[in-house]
């Protein structure tokens, strides 16, 4: 399960993870549950139907499948599987029962979504092996993840007997087992880190297994506070250096001299950011979870970028 605050690149990291885990001879499934078609956009394919289909080959040679879970279709599937409803399913839809179950009834939607993912994770081939070696879910954001994953407990409490109760309990067993890990994506910014810290505490309190932290979009450190301070104290030398590099005159009013202040201000902002990032890194370290750093993609999160990230994850040993 890959979660994270909005805007942290959750979908990109989930996709990179699915690619990285697809070693030679293995098969992973990348699942999205929020109906945004983020996977299709990332992999530059047409909108994904409610059907598992191969979308990529990982850098290790394994296959990546993708699935966009649709709660309504999952419910109809489920009804068909257990009750052989046939056309009655459509009738239920017409009177609004399906809409009710998937959008309004407490938690049913989330039960269906998590249920479908657990089903895929536990599905076996005829030979007895797992169909998918790993299932990666682009899960709801950190603020909702505990409720989303914990919904089965709640529904099992509401529906005290019957198949929904049993299904909810079965799903919860999988989610709380060591086969599951909830990974959190964050940026080195205050709010995402705060949400990560809060999210980890919530997940732990609910007994959901926390995996690791992906620190996304990191940027290289160029000049720290000490360096910037040194630069601020040697403006003349800096101006001369800029001039030697061919950027104009170093005298007062010269083009190189006029660059010094703007460049120093940018360097100062950078150094302040580094200092803040240092504090945030130690906050993340305090969670005592494995952490992976992923560099900011210069061209934004496009398909080549996802492969780059998958490579970085493999180098950092995520597949092990």
């Amino acid at each position: 399960m890959v979660t994270g605050k909005g805007g942290t690149g959750k979908t990109t990291v989930a996709a990179a993870l699915a690619l990285a885990l697809a070693e030679e001879g293995k098969r992973t499934l990348l699942v999205e549950v929020e109906g945004r078609q983020g996977i299709a956009q990332l992999f530059e394919t047409e909108a994904l139907p409610y059907e598992e289909r191969k979308i990529a080959v990982g850098p290790g040679g394994g296959e990546v499948y993708a699935l966009a879970v649709d709660a309504e279709k999952a419910l109809l599937d489920y009804l068909q599987m257990f009750y052989k409803l046939g056309g009655a399913g459509r009738a239920l839809k017409r009177i609004g029962a399906i809409d009710f179950a998937t959008t309004i009834a407490p938690g049913v939607r989330d039960v269906l979504l998590t249920g479908k993912v657990c089903e895929a994770a536990r599905r076996r081939t005829r030979a007895g092996g797992f169909v998918y070696d790993a299932v990666v879910m682009d899960a709801p954001p950190t603020g909702r993840i505990t409720r989303f994953l914990g919904v089965n407990d709640q529904v099992a409490g509401l529906a005290r007997v019957g198949p929904i109760h049993n299904q909810a309990q079965a799903v919860m067993r999988v989610l709380k087992s060591s086969e599951t890990a909830v990974h959190l994506v964050t940026l080195l910014e205050e709010m995402p880190v705060q949400e990560t810290v809060d999210g980890v505490a919530e997940l732990r309190a609910t007994g959901l297994p926390v995996g690791c932290v992906f620190v996304n979009m990191t940027r290289p450190a160029v000049l720290d506070r000490t360096a910037v301070r040194a630069a601020e104290e040697s403006r003349t030398e800096i101006a001369k250096a800029l001039s030697r590099a061919g950027l104009g005159g170093a005298r007062r009013g010269g083009r190189a001299e006029q660059l010094v202040d703007p460049l120093l201000r940018q360097a100062h902002e950078h150094a302040e950011r580094l200092a803040l990032e240092g504090e945030l890194r130690s906050e993340i370290a305090g969670l005592e979870l494995p952490a992976y750093e992923l560099e900011l993609l210069a061209e934004g999160a496009d398909l080549p970028g996802v492969y780059l990230l998958a490579g970085e994850l493999r180098e950092q040993g995520v597949a092990r």
Partner: peptide, 8 residues
């Protein structure tokens, strides 16, 4: 230092 500033 100037090079760093230019890279930034």
């Amino acid at each position: 230092l100037a090079a760093g500033m230019l890279r930034l």
